[in-house]
């Protein structure tokens, strides 16, 4: 039952014109970056770990952005088109509807990781970074994508329009990104410090750096990763709880 829903969602949002467009953008970006790293002198002076990290950061950032855009459309879009009511009237439970849509977003992420794999293999050529990259793609990346997508799906469920759902979802994503725009000194004070220490995105980037450059051990990495997993558990459980309780047709 849920499999059929996943199939429909994937056809509609992932392997549709829009979804393939997104995939195309991701591959173009990867190509431009890799080409830049290899050909442009200054950039190619960067050490390989930095190159891999920057590429991963960008890939994950863009993918989360796209996932949130897709996630916001998934429920609110069905409200706008008037198809949600019929879906809710089938034996599918609200929770299964949310899970089905979440899985479809994951299909997108898996496709993106497959596209990016050859690039990472080339960029990490001659080093032993590949296993770590795979860990970040398939464990950390997947966990982050699920977390942010479920947030997008929550707002898509609560709010009546795709536009509003997208705005609120993206705001949350941007907040977790704040540290990236701040200088090192600014990161040490007040609100910025708070986000810096608790943002799952910051945590994942920091641990990656710790692994590649500071060469910290597994335990330190695990501790550094705590915000990522706390965020994951919170986002997913809240969305699954809400999906059961909330009036999907509310906000009309």
């Amino acid at each position: 039952m849920i499999y059929e829903l996943v199939k429909k969602e994937t056809k509609e949002h992932i392997f549709s014109r829009k979804g393939i467009g997104f995939l195309f953008i991701v591959s173009i970006l990867l190509s431009i970056m890799s080409f830049g790293f290899i050909s442009v002198k200054e950039l190619s002076l960067l050490d390989q770990p930095s190159i891999v990290m920057t590429t991963f950061k960008l890939l994950l950032g863009i993918n989360i952005l796209i996932s949130m855009v897709i996630g916001s459309t998934m429920v609110a879009g069905e409200k706008e088109k008037g198809t949600l009511e019929s879906l809710l009237l089938t034996p599918l439970t609200k929770r299964k509807i949310i899970i089905g849509k979440l899985i479809a977003i994951l299909v997108f992420w898996l496709t993106v990781t497959l596209i990016s794999l050859p690039y990472f293999i080339v960029l990490s050529n001659g080093t032993s970074m590949l296993p770590t990259i795979l860990f970040y793609l398939y464990v950390v990346g997947t966990v982050l994508v699920i977390s942010f997508s479920s947030i997008a799906l929550i707002f898509s469920t609560i709010l009546a329009s795709t536009k509003n759902a997208m705005i609120v979802g993206l705001m949350i994503f941007l907040i977790t990104l704040v540290p990236m725009f701040l200088s090192t000194t600014m990161k040490k004070a007040g609100f910025a410090k708070l986000i810096q220490s608790y943002s799952p995105i910051s945590a994942s980037m920091k641990t990656m750096k710790d692994l590649f450059i500071n060469k910290l051990g597994a335990l330190d990495i695990l501790v550094g990763m705590v915000p990522v997993f706390v965020f994951f558990v919170l986002a997913l459980s809240v969305s699954l709880l809400i999906s059961k309780k909330v009036d999907f047709l509310g906000g009309e």
Binding site: E4, K11, E12, S16, G82, T83, E85, L87, T90
Partner: peptide, 29 residues
């Protein structure tokens, strides 16, 4: 849910499907 059928007021369709695909999709649900 298993014993009622409902055609809501101003409802929409997955317009990219064919009529048959649409029905097969719901039948599977």
């Amino acid at each position: 849910k298993n014993n009622i059928g409902v055609l809501p007021e101003s409802h929409g369709y997955y317009e990219w499907m064919t009529g048959k695909q649409y029905l097969l999709f719901f039948a599977s649900l």
